[in-house]
Amino acid sequence: MAKVKFDILESTCVPLPFENVDTDQIIPARFLSATSRLGFGDNLFCDWRYAKTGEKNSEFVLNNPDFSGKVLVTGKNFGSGSSREHAVWAIFDYGFRAVVSSFFADIFMNNALNNGLLPIVISDDLLKKLTTLVQNKPNTKVKIDLEKQTFTILSTGDSVKFAINPYKKDCLLKGLDDIDFLLNMKNLITGYENNKSLAK
């Protein structure tokens, strides 16, 4: 678990307009043999980012010098497949702090929130508009305000409220994590076990 604070983020975006981007694409299984959380960013989207020879694939957006920023804008059903948290570690380690899509896979969403990477769901229409805008004008900036739960495209003024679980929002704003929260509940947990004769 990581204790990461998030409040306001203003940044340009990196567009990755594909649907169903699964966690095997985000970080292929052959990189999962590590035993620490660090360094996965080097292999983020490895098989799209590098040719088999190890050279950079110039067509891939992460290798395009026009695009940079802390916000990844991607297609629906992002993060499907394997539960590997390494996918979130890789995205975070690369430098992203938020991912914008119209739809996220469940486990990815939980993993992201547990690591201070903010998953933001916007409508299909706004996602389409944002993606086109960013592709045409790479200097397009967005502003994310977690306290107000607003997502704004600064150049157009499009602004929407995004949803987030209030508990998770509070954790991110204060930089708290679930384990501290649960450790403080040990008596309650032991009480539950005693009630069910589970404390073995």
Binding site: M1, E85, I179
Partner: peptide
């Protein structure tokens, strides 16, 4: 159900997990 590594740590530490009901 499947979980991420932060949640594995959570279960090792407390035998519980924080989870919204699907």
């Amino acid at each position: 159900f499947g979980i991420g590594t932060s949640e594995v740590e959570m279960v090792l530490a407390t035998q519980c997990i924080l989870q919204p009901k699907p």
